[in-house]
Amino acid sequence: NKASVVANQLIPINTALTLIMMKAEVVTPMGIPAEEIPKLVGMQVNRAVPLGTTLMPDKVKNYE
């Protein structure tokens, strides 16, 4: 099972992601793969992401 990116804290809307905000966890359904964490640093979320929520591609601005 592959790990996904999960919010390590509440991430407010329009916040630029940092390493400390994210952790890798095996979750269902799968979100953004954990190996993409370095790519996500500096990207902004387009909505608030509660603690423990899986980061889905549609929650990150300009994620492809």
Rank of each mutant, 00 (worst) to 15 (best):
N1K: 13
N1E: 13
N1H: 14
N1D: 13
N1S: 13
K2G: 13
K2A: 12
A3N: 06
A3E: 10
A3V: 05
A3F: 10
S4Y: 01
S4A: 01
S4Q: 03
S4W: 03
S4L: 02
S4M: 02
S4G: 03
V5N: 03
V5F: 04
V5S: 02
V5P: 02
V6I: 12
V6T: 06
A7T: 07
A7F: 03
A7I: 05
A7V: 06
A7R: 00
A7P: 03
A7C: 05
N8G: 10
N8R: 14
N8W: 06
Q9D: 05
L10Y: 15
L10C: 14
L10E: 13
L10F: 15
L10K: 07
L10H: 15
L10N: 15
L10D: 15
I11M: 05
I11E: 01
I11A: 01
I11C: 05
P12Q: 08
P12I: 06
P12G: 05
P12S: 06
P12E: 09
I13Y: 08
I13Q: 11
I13G: 06
I13D: 07
I13R: 12
I13T: 11
I13N: 10
I13V: 12
I13L: 09
N14Y: 11
N14D: 12
N14K: 06
N14H: 14
N14L: 09
T15N: 00
T15K: 06
T15D: 02
T15C: 09
A16L: 11
L17S: 00
L17D: 01
L17A: 00
L17W: 00
L17R: 00
L17Y: 00
L17K: 00
T18R: 09
T18P: 01
T18Q: 10
T18N: 03
T18D: 05
T18H: 05
L19D: 06
L19M: 11
L19N: 07
L19T: 08
L19W: 11
I20A: 14
I20E: 14
I20W: 11
I20Q: 14
I20F: 12
M21N: 10
M21Y: 05
M21D: 05
M21G: 02
M21E: 03
M21K: 01
M21V: 05
M21S: 05
M22Y: 05
M22E: 03
M22K: 00
K23Q: 06
K23H: 07
K23P: 03
K23C: 09
K23W: 07
A24W: 08
A24Q: 06
A24R: 00
A24N: 05
A24C: 08
E25Q: 14
E25K: 14
E25L: 14
E25G: 10
V26G: 04
V26K: 09
V26I: 13
V26C: 12
V26L: 11
V27K: 06
V27N: 00
V27H: 03
V27Q: 01
T28Q: 13
T28D: 14
T28V: 13
T28E: 13
T28M: 12
T28P: 01
P29T: 05
P29D: 06
M30I: 11
M30R: 13
M30T: 11
M30E: 12
M30N: 11
M30D: 07
G31K: 00
G31T: 04
G31Q: 06
G31L: 05
G31W: 04
I32L: 03
I32V: 05
I32F: 04
P33S: 10
P33D: 08
P33E: 05
P33Y: 07
P33K: 06
P33V: 05
A34V: 05
A34M: 06
A34K: 04
A34T: 00
A34N: 01
E35N: 13
E35T: 13
E35K: 11
E35C: 15
E36C: 14
E36Q: 11
E36V: 07
E36M: 14
E36K: 12
I37Q: 03
I37R: 01
P38I: 09
P38L: 10
P38R: 09
P38A: 09
P38D: 09
P38M: 09
P38F: 10
P38E: 10
K39V: 11
K39H: 13
L40Q: 02
L40G: 02
L40V: 02
L40H: 01
L40F: 02
L40I: 08
V41I: 12
V41T: 04
V41A: 02
V41N: 01
V41H: 02
G42P: 02
G42L: 04
G42F: 09
M43Y: 11
M43C: 11
M43F: 10
Q44I: 14
Q44N: 05
Q44S: 10
V45Q: 00
V45P: 06
V45S: 02
V45H: 00
N46G: 05
N46H: 09
N46L: 14
R47M: 15
R47N: 11
R47T: 15
R47H: 13
A48E: 15
A48I: 11
A48K: 09
A48P: 13
A48N: 14
A48V: 12
A48F: 09
V49F: 06
V49L: 10
V49W: 07
V49C: 10
V49N: 05
V49Y: 05
V49R: 00
P50T: 08
P50E: 10
P50N: 07
P50A: 11
P50M: 09
P50F: 09
P50H: 09
P50W: 09
L51Q: 15
L51A: 15
L51T: 11
G52Y: 04
G52N: 09
G52T: 02
G52A: 02
G52R: 01
G52Q: 00
G52F: 02
G52L: 06
T53M: 13
T53I: 07
T53Y: 10
T53W: 09
T54C: 07
T54N: 02
T54D: 05
T54Q: 02
T54A: 07
L55Y: 00
L55R: 01
L55M: 05
M56G: 07
M56H: 10
M56W: 04
M56Q: 09
M56L: 09
M56D: 07
P57G: 06
P57I: 01
P57F: 04
D58G: 08
D58P: 00
D58C: 12
D58N: 11
D58M: 02
D58K: 02
D58I: 04
D58E: 10
K59H: 15
K59C: 15
K59P: 03
K59E: 15
K59T: 15
K59S: 15
V60M: 05
V60N: 01
V60L: 12
K61P: 04
K61C: 11
K61V: 14
K61D: 08
K61T: 11
N62M: 09
N62Q: 09
N62V: 03
N62H: 10
N62A: 08
N62W: 09
N62I: 03
Y63L: 03
Y63G: 01
Y63Q: 02
Y63H: 04
E64V: 15
E64M: 14
E64T: 14
